[in-house]
Design a protein around this nucleic acid. Structure first.
Lengths: 203, 203
DNA sequence: TTTTTTTGTGAATCGCCATTCACTTCTTTC
DNA sequence: GAAAGAAGTGAATGGCGATTCACAAAAAAA
């Protein structure tokens, strides 16, 4: 009667799904969303174009998942830092540094995830991601103010500004095909900006 | 022999061109680049689709011009402030305020100009615009440091961060269709953030 | 093994718009 | 006013790539 997938089958399917996601991410990483046509993703994942649609309802859905899972990962890393040791200022610094360094690691990927135009849905996912990043910083700001490390200030706006600030500063060297020298200075500059901006004592 | 356009004819042509630009801007303002198909622009300008191509080589070129001229206008306003009276801190504040207020005035337009996905060329123009905005702030930063109003700092990075910060903070309430209450607070929050960030004395 | 259900294939379809172009209408020249 | 040139029209074209679909291969049920 009813069809029951064997365990191996289950696994193979799950594996296919993962391979599709991985292929998509890789293509985005090397050429942005443009390079990542369904046909290309399929080929790179060793499947046919049609098969993709057994795993994802649409191209947009696929890329939303690619983006979202990347963001999840990123957020997890930041969250770990936030929950870690040290005073708030140090942790804020660590967050910005960490994010910036990883972004500069894989330029195109970061560009695509931060700024490259894509379909509506992907864009919405991106906005959501930014908001989530904002939340992380917001929690730091709140803690910092509570502990007297930062002066009273609007945490919502501050959080958004921080995200915007380092995001923008990162995109410039990333976007076209800029060199990566001065990377340390860049990251340090961004960190300094953000720390001053929140009113941290030591800059 | 050779055809010479009468003065009236010249004028009518120039007028058409302007009308096309205006129509395009209006469409973008009300529905983003998506709403602004060539056919729609043409209709709205009282011309046929084909006619557009007598004035602009391509859709991209048209929108690049729309965007660029809007940016020019914006830059001119900021430049005026920069060249004006008062200490650097005050002028920086005025720039941010002025920009933010205008952006909140016409939400969709600002969104389109700051963030909405569009064709490659338009995007490049947008990046260029951001850089130009950056230059304006950079000049303020340099002056501020010279005059001792701001501490020593990386002006390039700082300028980029400022643009990113207020841009991001503006987009959140703008992007979907947010309310405009708390506008004053928003603008004030952004200004405060930026002033602290550059290390201005009074915040 | 045969039947049924699921998964995979990839060429054909389809939608979407910018762009073109054969033609009409208006301007200028003679 | 007629001829020649320019501007305007809008339906047809063209390209692109996501999505579908008729069919094939593979897996589970019988």
């Amino acid at each position: 009667m009813s069809y029951k997938r064997s365990f191996l089958m289950e696994e193979r399917l799950a594996d296919n799904r993962q391979r599709i996601l991985k292929a998509a991410r890789a293509l985005v990483a090397e050429g942005g969303f443009n390079q990542a046509a369904i046909a290309a993703v399929a080929a790179s994942a060793g499947l046919s174009a049609g098969a993709i649609y057994r795993y994802f309802p649409s191209k947009a859905a696929l890329f939303v998942e690619v983006l979202t899972s990347a963001i999840d990962h990123e957020i997890a890393i930041l969250q770990e830092i936030v929950n870690g040791e040290g005073n708030v200022t140090a942790r804020l610094r660590a967050c910005v540094e960490s994010f910036a360094n990883r972004a500069l690691e894989g330029p195109y990927l970061a560009y695509a995830f931060i700024a490259e135009p894509a379909e509506q849905e992907v864009d919405e996912a991106r906005l959501l991601g930014r908001i989530r990043f904002g939340e992380v910083f917001k929690s730091l700001l709140i803690e910092g103010i509570e502990k007297g490390e930062f002066p009273e200030q609007s945490v919502d706006i501050g959080a958004a500004c921080i995200v915007g600030a380092f995001t923008e500063a990162l995109i410039r060297p990333i976007a076209p095909r800029a060199r990566r020298d001065g990377r340390t200075e860049l990251v340090e500059g961004i960190v300094a900006f953000c720390l001053r901006a929140v009113g941290a004592k030591i800059s």
